[in-house]
Structure formats: C-alpha cells, structure tokens
Amino acid sequence: MKAFSYERVSDPAQAAARAAEVPGAKFIAGGTNLLDLMKHEIEIPEHLIDVSGTGLDDITPTNEGGLRIGALVSNAALSADARVRKDYAVLSRALVSGASGQLRNKATTGGNLLQRTRCPYFYDTGMPCNKRSPGAGCAALGDGATSRQLGVIGTSDTCIATHPSDMAVALRVLDAEVETVTSSGETRRLTLDEFYQLPGDTPEVENALQVGEMITAVLLPPPVEGHHAYYKVRDRASYAFALVSVALIQASDGTGRVALGGVAPKPWRRDEADAVLSQGASAVMARLLDGARPTQENAFKLTLAERTLAALLAQE
C-alpha cells in the first residue's frame, strides 16, 4: 500500500469538489473493497477523502412513492429496513446473500455499486490484466487459464470479468437509479444500465462516473407488485461470490422481470427476455443469454442460469 494523505469532509458537494481538485484522490466510506485493493496496490490513491461523515445514511420516502437510499446506508441496515423488506424483498434478499455479517455492517450502498471484479487475474498483480493496466493483455483469456467464475456474456476480447455485486442485480430488476453529485455540484441521475459500462476496448472504465463525481443515493421507484425472489448459486453455502444469481419479480399473471448476476460485467437484464417470462425459463434464457461467449470452463453457467430460474418459477 502506498502512503496517502487523508481528510474528512462533511458535505457531498464539497467531497466531489475536493476529489476533482486533489490529484490521485479517492473517496472512502466502508472501505471493505477499497482497502483490500489498496493492500494489493490495485488501487493506489494518493489522497483519501473520508465521506463517512457526509450524512448520507438515511432511507427516506420519495415524492414518487419510492425510496431514496443514502449512499452511506450500510448493506446490513438496508437489508433490515422494514419498508425494503416489505416492498422490495428482492433487494433485501440479495443483500443478505452477499459477503458476511461483518462486511455487510461496514459496506455501504454506494461502495457496493463500485465493487471491483473478483477475477483472480485482476487480483494478482503478477498477471497481465487490461483492467488494471490497459493494453497489458488478459491472463484470464490465456490457453491454460482458470475461467470458471468469469463472465459468459457482455464480455469482450480484452476482458471477461464479472461484476460481483448481488445488491446491484436486485437494483437492476427494480429499475433503480443512481443519484450523484458532480465536482461542479450538479446532481445527476443514471439508470443502472447507464451507470455500468461494458468492457469493450476499455475494460478499465467500469461506470459512467466522471472525475470527482460521487454517488449520493440510490432511488427506488414505487414498489413493483408480485413475488420477489433472489436465488444465489455458489459453491459453498455462504460467504462466497455467485456462480450465477437470479433476481426475479413475478406478478400473479406470470409476467415480470429477471436479472442475472455472476454472468456479465454488469447486472444482466434485457427487455425482450422479460417479455417472455410467462413462457418459462428456457424462453427467457434464450433471449437473455443470446450472444453468450462462454469459455469451456464456464459454459455450465448457461445451463445453470436457466435451471436456477426454473427452480424459482417452480417454487411459486
């Protein structure tokens, strides 16, 4: 870990302005992913702006009938909020399937969205990685590589990493939006789809945030009626990242929405797949995973995604 200077700020706009002003600055709040990456020198901030005192830790109703979740609300607090449990169960379920009790107590809503991939080659600085060092090459695409955990769709010739968040998959299926403040003090709102970027030729760019821009909240639209479910499939029974996860909201008439985690560089959802939910898992996955480019090691994720959705649909 490289040495860094440190300051605390109390206001989000001030934080964003400082971040644009100080070279090599980064925000820190929960720190559960950033500090991990700093120890590996995958993240090398020269200055940390501690935003944990900026007061963004409330969940409040919106005028539209939804909820505004402050960026600093912990994963534990968000999962336990009575309104979330009642009206956004898919989000509560996704949150409690992630990480561990200790980590969820510290990890924040904003930080969860900004998690970096768990690709083992990204994490090993002895290996080439286009995400860490653009143009260096991708060890995960090598002939002898281990790619079982990695992405099957939305990937590119430069990067096959997945996004590791469970929370974001639920937010995607809920049509949540990300609210930010820019370094010039303006507020922006981005859908999850706009927020996350696919790797293409620039896998180092993972989201649409501009220099200095800080996440201030996540906005949930009014509750979506129906059965909410989140099925996370992993090797051990807890404290592990998803091989595949399925977020599902299904109305009593069989229509609804589906998003996948563990398969792509962003939470994965397509309108044309949602449109055929009432036809069953196989119809959904034919559309949702059309164009998939799995490796030999992770092709099972295609079967697994379909069967996991089928399991959820059979539970109702």
């Binding site: 440190y6 720190g31 559960t32 991990d36 501690d50 200790q102 107590n105």
Partner: peptide, 27 residues
C-alpha cells in the same frame, strides 16, 4: 488473511461487528 476473507479479526465498533483488517484506524 488481512483481506476480509476469514473473520479472525472480528471486533465490535460501537456495538457492531466488523472486520478490523478492512478498516483504517484513522477512520
């Protein structure tokens, strides 16, 4: 592990359990 992957460092901060290895002392 020093990376939030084992829980051996679990302490309570203001009554809440966290992994002390993934938290800066200065915070």
């Amino acid at each position: 592990c020093d990376h939030g992957q084992c829980g051996a460092c679990t302490v309570l901060v203001n009554g809440v359990r966290i992994n002390a290895c993934l938290s800066l002392a200065v915070m």
